[in-house]
Amino acid sequence: MSAETARQALLDHAAGGLTSLCRCWKVERRDGVSFGFTDHDCEVSFEGTLFKADSGLVASALVQTTGLSVDNTEALGALSDASVTEADIMAGRFDGASVQAWLVNWADPEARFQLFAGSIGEVSRSAGAFRAELRGLTEALNQPQGAIYQSPCSAVLGDGKCRFNTNAAGYFATPTVAEVTEARVFLFDGLEMFQARWFERGMLRLTSGAGAGLSGVIKNDRSRDGRREIELWAPIEAEVAVGDALRLEAGCDKQAATCRAKFANFDNFRGFPTIPGEDWLTSYPTSSNAATGGPLTSSSPWPTE
């Protein structure tokens, strides 16, 4: 049944006076795990998703507009081991998850109308419950546009602007955890082939264990007692055990010299390394210096010849 046909079937049902309507929500996380919820007292199923009635999920009034302003609402629910858990929220597994909401005839789920499509924004939790901000599809338009003129590169290593292949040999490692402290400091064996500080500013991505799918930005990369010590800026919000597998990705400090020497990718460098600095912008001519047409200050980045 097409979307228009399903909508018309719902309108015909509502026009009958005696209705059997409910709301259903589908939440799909970025790791591919999906959940179905409904405010009906029985389960509802359509489009291959089972919408559970025991989730305790409800939604506040939906704000929708015909312009480009951001549609928004809130989802409220109880934390449950069977659906949304506090551990998953703290780990960020629901951050940016896609959300769809329908008005459905529970007696005939083919008769339905989509009320909302968007993503989860801020999520808070307290007293065994959670509150999630829902953002409409126009939220994606609420981003800065245009280029920023700055000395360091504005691209992210491996993205469409950088174009560097982060799967290239020598730029990643897949070790197992030899020792871990507070899910923030990791020790590894067998990484001697990588230069010191090779992974600083890179990513640590867990591929097994309770934290599989989670990642963190690397703050420090140093050797300690014959082992490699990797420290993250913030701890992984899940239990990490010795023997868990992960992926370490080389880091980039956004400097032109690093792009050229470490990654041989200067053709795609997105910074402006010769842009004048603050000293040049605040310089001015003085009577004590000869007006030769050369640089105003010795700190100028421009050639003196």
Rank of each mutant, 00 (worst) to 15 (best):
I218P: 05
L50V: 15
Q145P: 06
G118S: 06
A78C: 00
L79R: 00
E139K: 05
F188D: 05
S283C: 09
I230P: 03
T274C: 07
R7F: 07
A15C: 11
A91L: 07
C153K: 08
V123P: 00
V84P: 02
L21N: 03
A78I: 13
D95Q: 12
E133I: 08
F46R: 08
W280D: 08
V63C: 01
R184F: 09
V123L: 04
Q195M: 08
T286A: 01
L157E: 03
L62M: 10
E43K: 06
W102S: 00
A111K: 02
A155W: 14
A241E: 14
D31Y: 07
G226W: 06
G96E: 04
A210E: 14
L50C: 07
D95L: 10
T19D: 06
K52D: 13
Q145A: 15
D71H: 14
D39Q: 02
K161D: 15
R7W: 08
L206R: 01
R30P: 00
R247Q: 14
E122T: 13
E200A: 13
G121H: 03
G216N: 06
A238T: 03
T85P: 05
P303A: 11
P144I: 11
A257W: 11
G136Q: 09
A250S: 14
L134A: 05
V99P: 00
D267Q: 15
G67N: 14
F266W: 11
D279Y: 01
A97Q: 03
A75Q: 00
F35K: 07
N105I: 03
I89C: 01
W106N: 01
S299L: 11
A291H: 12
Q143V: 14
G211N: 01
N265R: 05
T181Q: 15
